[in-house]
Design a protein around this nucleic acid. Sequence first.
DNA 1: CGTGCCATGTCATGAACGTGTAATAGCTTT
DNA 2: AAAGCTATTACACGTTCATGACATGGCACG
Lengths: 224, 224
Amino acid sequence: MARVLLIEDDPNVRNALTLALKGRDHEVESAASGEEGLERLTRFAADVVVLDLMLPGIDGFEVCRRIRATTSTSIVMLSARGDDFDVVGGLEAGADDYVVKPVRPQVLEARIRAVLRRTNGVPSPVETYGALCVDRASLTVSRDGRRVALPPMELRLLLHLSAAPGQVFSRQQLLESVWEHDYLGDSRLVDACVQRLRAKIEDMPAEPRYVQTVRGFGYRFGPV
Amino acid sequence: MARVLLIEDDPNVRNALTLALKGRDHEVESAASGEEGLERLTRFAADVVVLDLMLPGIDGFEVCRRIRATTSTSIVMLSARGDDFDVVGGLEAGADDYVVKPVRPQVLEARIRAVLRRTNGVPSPVETYGALCVDRASLTVSRDGRRVALPPMELRLLLHLSAAPGQVFSRQQLLESVWEHDYLGDSRLVDACVQRLRAKIEDMPAEPRYVQTVRGFGYRFGPV
DNA sequence: CGTGCCATGTCATGAACGTGTAATAGCTTT
DNA sequence: AAAGCTATTACACGTTCATGACATGGCACG
């Protein structure tokens, strides 16, 4: 029914879950480490990733973030303990659900189904520009897979600019459409907001990659 | 592995089964009468109810019907005699299985597992988000396995938000779809309802995990 | 019919946060 | 070199939200 990528270092658990999920008509690929999992994911279009937290090399949280950085694949985390730190951290890292080991295969499968029901039902309109991810449904922005918290005006500005990549907007246009200011006035307000936005989403604010200045005209959302 | 509510008036049987099930890693609550059992069920989100038929006060059939009226919890009936009337009546009243006393604990446990296997195979419309469970059929909500009683408006709000996890809803949208208010007005009504809902479902209402504020825009159901 | 409880909507308060403005520094073009 | 444009930073005001108290109204129960 679904394409599942299982990232789990314990061979016993890995085999058991693989068999159980295959027995329920899922297509399963497995990986024994985070690196291997990320590599598989580039060739295997999984619907959902089942991700163990305790992994050799890069840990589950980091894997989770990296997956989220590039795809919207659902993630079900798997952990030996249900301690709050893990749960909170896991969900913050972008997991869709969190299951505590030991887990019965049918429970895991029910979780997978629930997650897929949720995410497949309403695919969220997420736009990716390089390392920047803009989700217009949840109004969240992430850079390199890490969530960036944006205040309202900066977020509105980014949403407006990124809706038409490449198009140049004058300050006046932005004041009208983003700020809904009707009066005409020379104000550096837009500039200030752009600076603050850049400080949060750009790697090198001095040489912005996403929100670019068009001298004498206004601003534009990358690409280059 | 499972959460079992045992409704049985005979103290000997009750204690014996409770101990046996606990010894096999189940979480067990017990009640000595139908009334008590129904009351427990409002606070204990059982996976399965083991229900004796001969009870003081309201009898097992009636308890069974009342449970079925509100929840989709599995029910295993327990009876002193195996006469056909009871079996047929029990299953008609909505029981999932029927066991005849005296019953050896391991047999009862096997039945419980079987019932859960069956019902898990066809997942009821229950959505689990972290520690929060929303059952859209019975309109019940539980947190960490404990039932949370929600007033109508708070429940409607939660159902609406959780139907589209991650999606941000403005206050105005919520007023229209949840309250069915058509007028436009600046009202803190939504805020108040969110606040009351949080107090009931969040571990730390000040740092909500499920119903999140998106400053300047509205609210969203996590996990994001 | 009366009473009491609970849910709901409104309001006041306070704190946290974001925003607009302004002043200064830096850079580009003429 | 000067003028024009933009970057950067700082600060104070205003907005927004959380929180808790209060009044209303419906519903169940006596």
